[in-house]
Design a protein around this nucleic acid. Structure first.
Lengths: 243, 243
DNA sequence: TCCCTCAAATCATATATATGACTAGTTGAC
DNA sequence: GTCAACTAGTCATATATATGATTTGAGGGA
């Protein structure tokens, strides 16, 4: 067995170092969803390990959802399925249980600012870009969001042309900043609508409000976003799968 | 390669059939957390496959959380960690984010009855045992639960001695009926307290209410429980990890 | 009794190899 | 031009085997 290719963390087993090397190639954009990655036998040659070891490394990344195998065709970086990710990361349903259609998104504000306490604590910096956004379903506002992302990793986000801002942020993060959201942690609570929020949501101040606080993490498990989303508590549904 | 041991679903690859056979052994209690399961080489002999194939089957079950490997020692059925499962299956936190201590549990009712529509639909039977339960933290009621389990699989649950009813149900399911909760699906919504619920929770009728509807599934993915839990929406927190 | 050493058992890592299944492109007959 | 047949490449399954790391218990010595 050989000792250390690009050698992240020596002394780990070969398959683990391989896996980290592959992760780096994905993170740096050397491997993209456009083309299949080299075949398992080729990678085995390149790194001077057996096919089985390459397979075990790839297994891990497939498990994590970073790669996708296609028998007969090859293995690719998984294009984050962002249409699905709306439900993945926003599992809100209609009251009857049917999935909601993709809400449209109106950006109200983007600005470099100082992070409020919870965002600063989670992101470990006060240097953030704040995004305020209103999401609507057939012209009815349903969700008011305040989003904080660290300036360090998203420099220039506030200056992206309006035209490039689609209804979903995570694809933007990926395309413009190479940041891929890997997992997130949500906390649901209930409160009362402030005057400001009520106005945006076209409800009354003091009406019951559902609040989702989310922290999102990248593939290296670093926090990259903190957001608070608020919507009318009436007809609110949040679905969660526990394994 | 051989064709069919206990032969669940023939025509599947050997490792998949092995995995199913192992699952069955766990489900029937042939393998328990008390003793390690046979070694990989022994299983390879027993089923006349190679060690690699056994390993791949075991890999799957370890991944699912049913088995636990210990290098040098052996592989065991994972004792469901029910103390942890309170948070696993009820990730409610204090407002400051700290985990709550285990709430005490007072059973108010157990009776054989007819399932209400949503429970019947999910459990696919109207023949159920209903459990009504109040959970409290330091004498303050926090959660009012109505739980439905199919009589078919939990016959006699309503007649278990009071003394055997601990603060957690899932261990009971496992110990007395061999039913292991494998995963669950929660839906969080918002409502108003009915007179009946309000009284139990010591709040006022009409007060804001957080409602969690849960369906729990066993290792064979059959629904085994449907419950509705209600608590005051004030100070309510529900945490969810998304991967 | 206590502690150390040693050996057996077991899982973990790694290699090498063979065969099957599937995909995508090419070739060739019509 | 169309379509079927073929083929090379790739992942999927499976075997056999070797070596390392870790755990556990048995013996032995102080």
């Amino acid at each position: 067995m050989m000792i250390g290719f690009d050698a992240p963390d020596a002394r780990l087993p070969a398959y683990a170092r391989l896996r980290d090397t592959f992760t780096a190639r994905i993170a740096t954009g050397e491997w993209t969803p456009d083309h299949p990655i080299p075949s398992e036998s080729r990678l085995a040659q390149e790194f001077d390990v057996s096919v089985g070891t390459v397979r075990k490394a790839v297994d891990g990344l497939v498990e994590e959802g970073l790669l996708e195998r296609r028998q007969g065709s090859g293995t690719r970086v998984r294009a984050p399925s962002f249409s699905a990710s709306l439900f993945r990361f926003f599992p809100i349903r209609e009251t009857d249980g049917s999935p909601v259609s993709i809400p449209s998104s109106q950006i109200i504000l983007r600005s470099v600012t100082q992070a409020p306490a919870p965002a600063a604590s989670v992101l470990d910096t006060e240097d953030v870009i704040k995004i305020v956004r209103l999401r609507s379903l057939s012209d009815q506002p349903v969700l008011f969001e305040e989003i904080y992302i660290p300036t360090e990793r998203f420099a220039g986000f506030d200056k992206l042309p309006e035209s490039s801002l689609g209804p979903l942020l995570y694809p933007l993060y990926f395309e413009h900043f190479g940041v891929m959201v890997k997992r997130a942690s949500d906390e649901v609570s209930f409160g009362k609508a402030s005057e400001r929020v009520a106005q945006r949501l076209r409800i009354r101040a003091g009406d019951p409000l559902a609040v989702i606080e989310r922290t999102a993490f990248d593939i290296e498990n670093r926090p990259i976003e903190w957001r608070v989303a608020s919507g009318s508590a009436t007809n609110f549904r949040y679905r969660s799968e526990i394994n």
